[in-house]
Design a protein around this nucleic acid. Structure first.
Length: 586
RNA sequence: GCCCCCGUAGCUCAGUUGGAUAGAGCAGGAAACUUCUAAUUUCAAGGUCGUGGGUUCGAGUCCCGCCGGGGGCGCCA
């Protein structure tokens, strides 16, 4: 990447300055390059200020001495106060256009992962209902992160974790039995906390139609279990359709229940028990990170007073405090002990399976904020089990407030008033759905205003970005069809760039894509793609307004056609990373 | 009681790991269509970055307190 090249050149310059006696000896710190205001250059380096104390010199003077020793074939160097600024040379920018054209649809790829296996697990909603709009934010986030990791050089695996074990499922089975029986005129009341939503009713009826009334005669417990299992399959089938529609593909659907049937859960518990981290208390089984016993205030984090009393080592800086003990198997009396397991009991073997058995690093999880309490627990389990630092990355996204007609729509899956992802997609389309879901940081609880997204059709960043792509496609089409231009010849030509500001700005934006991929892939923040796509589209619009393409002499026409092609490639890739279409006509 | 997230322009939100004069998009104001898609562009306007301290050459960004909003935990999933 260009930024890496310049960073290296700064480091070399410091070393050269030291060798020449212009700077004293010191170990060179991490050098960060940023994008300053455009008037000041393309990249800026503030390392001189960090060095002021070490080098015992005024920052401005250090900057001067570093700049003096910079050897760069791609940029010119200027010093402004204490900053060392770089401006990419126009000839270099012109050459880079060829690089983009050559990379084509792989433009933006970087080699961060070196082919290592990475996983993004997303979706993973309870299979007790169809995909909601909340699931929508989850899967769009996860799928885009997976795209980014793929572009960053990882071998990416996409997985949906099917929560097909536990209480929720039993309640779902019982609810289905009620809806099922209803189809045969039998009034069996919904269990408490049962599923009353249209999706549950639909599944119950579908089972009645497909299976007949044979379950009515069966043992009730067995019937509930069987119906629950079949119901999950039906729900998952529907969810898969929704995912396909959203352009999301999974390499695997991982069954939570398989953790128990395969013995993985038992083995993980044994590993914890061997380390003395499992504690029986009041009939329940607890995980305690530091092995400390459960105290009177069960499950509570130790107070600072209690820490003061105890002989615990004072906490080291940066080392997280041990988590509070957490129940992994409840005391509830249920026939099968596996069914007393909490989510957390599954999380442990699942994490081991991901990182140790399958070698994913990073293993990224995308979770809704309702699971935030589990975050420190899973990290704690990873620590105690000796998983590599950073192998597990949990991404928590905030829930969405849905507005319709200026009123907030309250949602709840159990009550059955959840807004389905399919319904929203019906209204706004896949591309707008994905873009809006991506346009805010996962930490932001944002309002999805259905009316706004629909009504804004003509003035919407979603369409603005796609419009840029369609405009280019149209222009290139006309160039070939109406002007008889051989586009391949134009792309292969080597005229110098006219050098208009609009041209250079467009190239700078296109060249930024690899940096954005790195940003998204390392911080696991997909929203940067939307901001980038918007900026790139703006750069193209400005170019388009200020630089005439068709009808100009060949020496202008050809390089500008190359720029159009370059912009098209970058826009298409940005859209593709976000899982959106890049239309040729609008 | 404890934990996590958020608070930036009228609205919705960015802010590239602590850098120079805090940015976009909408909404509202003023312009530009004989010109490759006006789903566009240009200009102007809009801010005590919730608040009070602290850390340092430098804080929207890091630390602590407080205020406001949201979410979660204390044998639910």
């Amino acid at each position: 990447m260009i930024r890496d090249t310049l960073t290296r050149q700064v480091a070399d310059a410091i070393a050269a300055a030291q060798a020449a006696g212009d700077l004293p000896q010191f170990s060179i710190p991490d050098i960060g390059l940023m994008h300053p205001r455009p008037e000041l250059g393309d990249y800026a380096c503030s390392v001189a200020m960090q060095l002021a104390r070490i080098a015992r010199l005024p920052p401005a003077q250090i900057a001067q001495r570093i700049a003096k020793h910079v050897v760069s074939d791609i940029a010119t160097v200027e010093v402004a106060s204490a900053y060392v600024n770089f401006r990419l040379k126009p000839e270099f920018l012109g050459q880079q256009v060829n690089i983009v054209l050559l990379a084509g649809e792989r433009w933006g790829d970087i080699d961060l992962g070196h082919g290592a296996a990475a996983q993004v697990e997303h979706g993973s909603a309870n299979p007790t209902g169809y995909a909601t709009i909340g699931t929508g934010r989850n899967v769009v986030t996860g799928d885009t992160l997976a795209n980014a990791l793929d572009a960053a050089g990882y071998a990416v695996h996409r997985e949906w974790y099917v929560n097909d074990a536990g209480n929720q499922i039993r309640a779902f089975g019982a609810s289905l039995f009620s809806h099922y029986a209803q189809a045969f005129g039998q009034d069996i009341p919904l269990p408490e906390k049962g599923y009353a939503g249209e999706d549950a009713v639909e599944v119950g009826r579908a089972l009645a139609a497909a299976e007949g009334d044979r379950f009515l005669a069966m043992d009730r417990d067995a019937a509930t279990r069987e119906l629950g299992r079949m119901g999950i399959d039906l729900v998952m089938a529907r969810i898969r359709l929704t995912m396909t529609r959203l352009g999301i593909h999974y390499d695997n659907y991982f069954s939570e229940r398989s953790l128990y049937t395969s013995g993985r859960a038992a083995r993980a518990l044994e590993a914890l028990r061997a380390r003395g981290l499992l504690i029986d208390h009041d009939g329940a089984l607890w995980f305690s990170e530091d092995g400390s016993p459960i105290r009177s205030g069960q499950g509570k984090r130790k107070t600072s007073d209690e820490y003061a009393e105890s002989d615990d080592e004072p906490e080291e800086k940066g080392k997280p405090a041990p988590i509070q003990a957490v129940v992994i198997r409840s005391a509830a009396v249920v026939a099968n002990p596996d069914e007393r397991a909490t989510y957390f009991a599954s999380d442990i073997p699942y994490a081991l399976n991901k990182v140790v058995e399958r070698g994913f690093n990073p293993a990224v999880y995308v979770w809704g904020e309702d699971h935030q309490a589990d975050v420190p627990r899973v990290y704690a389990a990873a620590r105690t089990l000796g998983l590599p630092e950073g192998a597990i990355r949990l991404i928590i996204y905030r829930f969405i407030t849905l507005m319709r007609g200026g009123v907030e729509v309250r949602m709840g899956k159990r009550k059955g008033n959840a807004i389905l992802a399919d319904d929203v997609v019906d209204e706004v389309g896949v591309d707008a759905f994905r873009y809006v879901m991506l346009s805010r940081s996962v930490d932001t609880k944002f309002t999805f205003d259905l009316d706004l997204v629909k009504e804004q059709k003509n003035d919407n960043p979603v369409y603005y970005v796609q419009y840029g792509h369609a405009r280019i496609a149209s222009l290139l089409r006309r160039a070939a069809e109406e002007h008889g231009i051989d586009l391949e010849a134009a792309y292969a030509s080597d005229y110098p760039l006219p050098g208009e500001p609009g041209e250079l700005d467009l190239i700078r934006r296109a060249l930024e894509l690899p940096e954005i991929v790195e940003l998204v892939a390392t911080k696991l923040e997909p929203h940067h793609f939307t901001a980038y796509a918007q900026a790139l589209a703006t750069a193209f619009s400005r170019f388009y307004e200020s630089c005439r393409v068709l009808g100009t002499p060949e020496a202008v026409l050809y390089p500008r056609l190359k720029l159009c092609r370059m912009a098209q490639i970058a826009l298409a890739r940005a859209l593709s990373l976000m899982g959106m279409s890049a239309p040729d006509r609008m």
